[in-house]
Amino acid sequence: MIPYGRQSIDQADIDAVVEVLQSDWLTQGPSIERFEAAMAARHEAQHAVAVCNATAALHIACLAVDLGPGDWLWTTPNTFVASANCARYCGANVDFVDIDPHTWNLCADALEAKLITAEQAGRLPKVVVPVAFSGQSCDMARIKLLAQRYGFIVIEDASHAVGASYLGRPVGCGDYADMTIFSFHPVKIITTGEGGMVLTNRAELAERLRSLRSHGITRNPAQMSEPSHGPWYYQQTELGYNYRITDIQAALGLSQLHKLDAFVARRRELAARYDQLLADLPLQLPTRQAGAESAWHLYVVRLKLDQIGKTHREVFEGLRTAGIGVNLHYIPVHTQPYYRALGFKDGDFPNAEAYYREAVSLPMFSGLSNQQLEVIVLAARKVLGG
């Protein structure tokens, strides 16, 4: 079975991890700060805060701006549930903005229309989480203008987009978002096993994020309520979490970061080859948004089922039977039972629902060979009847 995604680990990565295993530091050591500094530099951001996974990163990003009961967070329904759950962890309310039928990202037109209505109702969001679906940014320049007009905070969920760029600048640079979230899950662009990161240019947010990832504890005398008792002393100044990444993971991430450009370049080659070989099949291929250079975490197609003569499930299972490990990203979040119980229903976000009925994620990872890609395309031709 050719998987839809997988990590690319080489001897340099293994050596980096072994070096940490043989050192004095396994958990909170110098590799973490080195990884954070390198990520900040690579993405032209002022601060980077590494955590145990991207869900934790989303959670503490919301906490850092004091999202809480009575507040609203808006995101896209075409995402993993974590992009919405982070608000619920804080006791806040969640709503969604439908997707653009071409890019499959949160639609800036729909966002503006919803903001106009929300302002009239006195229910504007405190936070908007645009998701860089498949590795391609949303229309972030317009979202920033809307944020300035309506006063919301932008937390870009760029879990798919490490190494991507937008309007000539690295995703994560902070030009269009208050905070940017990255994921280092094994199927993402680079991996730490599990891991995540928040990038920001706001020093006060970075300081709060570091506190929240480590129990709300400080060893900085300037932040204490009384003089230090001695070199052993620390204070818990707020309720935080154990969301720390380990030195082992950070060493792997730093080694992987050295290969980021090569990984992204290969993914772009594969996407271009898919475009070429699938062009004559009854599929809607991914749209490239002007000014956005995708990192190509995913390569998603939509089935033109009226031309194929098979159901969505028949196509999906046919490809799996042929040894192609296709997947589906994503089931619209508002249709999950938890969110239905909050009042969401079918028909609320029709573009996302229509997308779900037709979407298939084809294998995409930097180690995918040209021969494997041709096997995938041949299987698709057989299943689709092309």
Rank of each mutant, 00 (worst) to 15 (best):
14 I>D: 03
15 D>P: 01
16 A>W: 02
28 Q>D: 12
31 S>Y: 05
35 F>H: 10
42 R>G: 04
43 H>I: 10
44 E>A: 13
56 A>F: 09
58 L>V: 01
59 H>S: 01
63 L>M: 08
74 W>A: 00
84 A>K: 03
88 R>I: 09
93 N>M: 06
94 V>S: 02
96 F>N: 07
99 I>S: 13
111 L>D: 00
115 L>M: 13
161 A>E: 08
187 V>K: 05
189 I>C: 03
190 I>Y: 01
203 A>M: 05
213 R>L: 06
219 R>F: 14
228 S>G: 13
229 H>D: 15
236 Q>L: 12
237 T>M: 15
250 A>G: 13
254 L>G: 03
254 L>M: 11
256 Q>V: 07
260 L>E: 11
263 F>D: 02
267 R>I: 06
272 A>I: 01
273 R>I: 07
278 L>W: 00
281 L>V: 03
295 A>E: 03
303 L>E: 07
314 E>A: 13
321 T>K: 10
329 H>A: 12
332 P>G: 07
339 Y>G: 02
345 K>V: 10
346 D>V: 12
346 D>N: 08
352 A>H: 09
359 A>Y: 06
361 S>H: 11
367 G>S: 12
368 L>S: 04
371 Q>L: 10
371 Q>N: 02
377 V>Q: 05
380 A>E: 00
386 G>C: 11
